[in-house]
Design a protein around this nucleic acid. Sequence first.
DNA 1: ATGAAAGCGCTAACAG
DNA 2: CTGTTAGCGCTTTCAT
Lengths: 337, 337
Amino acid sequence: MTTIKDIAKIAGVSITTVSRALNGYSDVNEGTRKKIMDVAKQLNYSPNTLARSLVMNKSKTIGLLVSGWKRSSAKDNFTFEVLSGINDYIGTTDYDIVLFSTDSTKQREKTYSQLCRERRVDGVILQGIKLDDPYLEEVVESDIPCVLIDIPIKSSSVGFVTTDNVIGAYSAVNYLIGLGHKNIAMVNGHELAFVSQKRLQGYMDAHREANLPIRTSWILDGEFDEERAETVAFELLSSNKEITAVFCASDLMALGVLKATEKLGIQVPTDLSILGYDDIILASYVKPALTTVKQDIFQMGFEAAKMIVQMLDGTQGPKVVTLPTEIIKRNSCAVKS
Amino acid sequence: MTTIKDIAKIAGVSITTVSRALNGYSDVNEGTRKKIMDVAKQLNYSPNTLARSLVMNKSKTIGLLVSGWKRSSAKDNFTFEVLSGINDYIGTTDYDIVLFSTDSTKQREKTYSQLCRERRVDGVILQGIKLDDPYLEEVVESDIPCVLIDIPIKSSSVGFVTTDNVIGAYSAVNYLIGLGHKNIAMVNGHELAFVSQKRLQGYMDAHREANLPIRTSWILDGEFDEERAETVAFELLSSNKEITAVFCASDLMALGVLKATEKLGIQVPTDLSILGYDDIILASYVKPALTTVKQDIFQMGFEAAKMIVQMLDGTQGPKVVTLPTEIIKRNSCAVKS
DNA sequence: ATGAAAGCGCTAACAG
DNA sequence: CTGTTAGCGCTTTCAT
């Protein structure tokens, strides 16, 4: 593997000059530079970023910590979309991504900042982490630049990107109300998800505004899990025939609810309207196609990457990005009969 | 940031001893080791892998090069599944993944080996690369350990994992033949895809064995693209009414064919049987649910990661892994009427 | 069992 | 414009 030392020797200059020439400093004679460049090319030189990082004290890498990356996440293409967005933006920069592959066991033996410091990542993007994850506390305490996806923490070294969950849920429920529904249940994620808290708020806001009573027994947690949502919805719907619409905090759970209706012989959307969240790929393919609140997840990843890079490069940029959502009307919701 | 030097000073020993103690060498007095460990903990020490990598000349990182990572790949959850498998295996090791985020422009200005050498990755996993990609040639020439997904190159430094594409396609077509079909078209990917070549072979083998004529005009390329497949199938089916079954080299393309049939008023599976490949998530959700050749893509990623790690650690292990496929019978194929 | 010293490949004052 | 020198944090002979 050729080094700048080799180049220096052959070009007949000092390693300093080589370093300066290669890095485009202005105080190098053009002739010398050309010669050095030539030798470098000829020797098929690649700089050793490890050495550079060591001395410069920055690695030009961004850590990516995906919590709870399960095989099953494929169904829900959330993680992949985020990754795609990050990858897309980072591709335009000189950073690279280090994927922290920490399984549950490894996760617990190494603290967050250990993970980051060992690899000397310049910044981190966190996704899928729960509100009670001990890592989260560390994020705040540590001074490693970090951007969170769907977790609202902001400080001098941390920012976040999310979507307008309250408004998203509010509009969704409002849409249902506009369709004539008054008995609207909600299948939420879980209490430790920021988005669940917000979407619940939107659900309640819409009810309050329409002077509709809120029945807490109709608000259930489906853990963002298809099966769990099915179970929960099955029980709810079989014993509460007056419910005419269900708002779900994720499409995957909406799919679960849909399965429950099939088992119960409930017609969607004739007997029951189902409204999802996310607009995952499956949403438009199932029958009936899911009406849902669309989030631009790719964009979330993109913005997260952009934000961290801006933080690192000292460029001015927002520490909080809230992306809009949009209701996609398909066939799982109908006017109350 | 604390270093072994700091620890050495406080513990009152030399940095050599600290290094040895921390790395679990046996020739360190247990008392000294304990003291060093204590100080390290107290100082919240994290080793600097950059420095270590520099001197050891290995980084404990594996590069991941995903060619053609497009936003649209989400539909086809292939890439994500591979990633999940890799992530899963790597999580059990002390390696980390470096995602080479190279967009098309960047890709062409940096050669493959430059990419790898700059980051000093110990090995590489390549996915989604086409047979005519210039990177491929470099892979062979370079001596960087590498494992390819679905590209059959094997040398002292490169291995690959794939599935039994010939058998998979053969069984699929054979299944169709068993259903009474004699006029079976094929929507393949493209010539530069190894898997397409193999699946075509399987298609032909099955025909030959059954003494069925092969009509090359019925073998079309859909570029692994849903829309392209739809277009191609639309033309094919509208002018060749005698075709009673279509074998597709991917589920995504099968979905495209399905769309074409809808436009043509062809009933699936009554009038036409459609058989896909991959068993993507969508396959079981569309109506009619797709009969398909399932590949365990997650496992491919897992095996690829395992292989590269074994190569790097000098553990014995295969350089070629071929995973089985399996026909998943759902509702898009029926007995020829 | 421990330490001194060299060096991995690179950048960055500081001189000249 | 160019070279000398020091050092980033760590591992590794080679002595002791």
